[in-house]
Amino acid sequence: MTSAVDNSVALAPPKRRRVPVRRRIVPYVLIMPGMLLLAAMMVYPLIQTVVFSFAKVQLPTFRTSFIGLKNFTQIFGSDNLQPMLGRTLFWIVGTVVLRFILGFWAALTFNATVKGTIVLRILCILPWTVPSIASANLWRWLLQSDTGLIDQTLKVLGLPHLALNWLADPRTAMPVVMVAYSWAGFPFIMLLLLAGMQGIPKESYEAAKVDGANWWQLFRHITIPSLRGVIIVAILLEIISALNSFDMLYVLTTGGPGNSSQILSQFIYQTGFTSFNLGGASALSTLLLVVAFGIFLLYAVLNSRSTQREGRS
């Protein structure tokens, strides 16, 4: 690190280091394009979001005038905000839980390495590989009222009273989109968990079995603790992706009927680009930014705790 050391290296027959000054500049040159992109397309826009949230953005000139907290008071004063945040929370918790149940179930199933199940495993990965718009269309067709496969099958089974207009009924719209969304995402959780499970040494299971542990005890005291790190990462990724989700909701319900399946991301889009209230959309974005930041902090705390517990750095 010190120049004295570098000089002695330079004087000695050249080993691995070249001219130190050059070596100090090279990495910055290498990362320069990426960092410029990051500054122009991420740091600057994020600052803009916060600035706009305190401004009125006039259309079509895009002139901004500072209006203080007006955007925020308007948002927090609206009757729609609280139910919308409630739906967002319901969406996040619901989709994360559903994806985890399915993903964990699949990982446990396919970790058992029973002959022939590899084919089933490959089939289970398929939903994750389909583009979100294509999955949304597949589910839109399945969920069609009366003519969709689900309603038709219910009628074949003699349960016509259960055949609902899933996407147009405020009671079912959000839950069915949650199922569709979990369908598309559970394989990723499965793959993450499977990768984690393969890292658990077989010996720990065998030792516990000798001691007479049943499968639940194995699961509770060996599988879960060993997967702690993977699970935390997966939950973080899933919460962010749930906060971010837009495509499926847009194609399947566009937040409707009424507002019954509208969540924060949808609301930002509508405020900004249907009502053209860019200041309001920015205020909502700032709110979302704060929420996301809170989640990162929580993750950082959890992560440092779990690494402390496991005793590695």
Partner: peptide, 28 residues
């Protein structure tokens, strides 16, 4: 180095909707 690396990762994890208004204004 580490700060920049983590900043890159954080941007990957930020909800995309958050920057949609400034992107719109920039592109305009």
């Amino acid at each position: 180095r580490d700060t920049l690396l983590w900043t890159v990762l954080l941007t990957q994890l930020f909800p995309r909707v958050v920057v949609i208004v400034p992107y719109f204004v920039i592109l305009r």
